[in-house]
Amino acid sequence: MSNNNLIKGSLQTIILKLLEEKDRMYGYEITQKVKELTAGEIKITEGALYPALHKMEAEGLLTTEIQQVDNRVRKYYSLTKSGKAEMSSKMNELHAFIDNLHRILNPAIDPKLNL
């Protein structure tokens, strides 16, 4: 399952969804949460995560706040209003894609059936 291309394509959706569930998260926390939720099957690399977070911040989907934690500065990310809207649309897109993928992989399923 740990296909890098599949993860790359859904990284933005994963980040948006995690931030919707938890108000704010920092980079390392996101990598650990994904690892925990997938029992280590999916590992988000730092090389993919940070550029994606910075890109989403520049696009106005995420906002950041810095906070002093245990003698160091921590940067937290949270969803903006447009980030929340983007999350809903990305989730719908992903669900529709998964449904279609099911149909392709199981041609026996009636195309008109609502999965």
Binding site: Y26, G27, Y28, E46, D70, R72, V73, K75
Partner: peptide, 8 residues
């Protein structure tokens, strides 16, 4: 700060 926090 982000890299340092990640390392720590």
């Amino acid at each position: 700060s982000e890299v340092y926090d990640h390392y720590l």
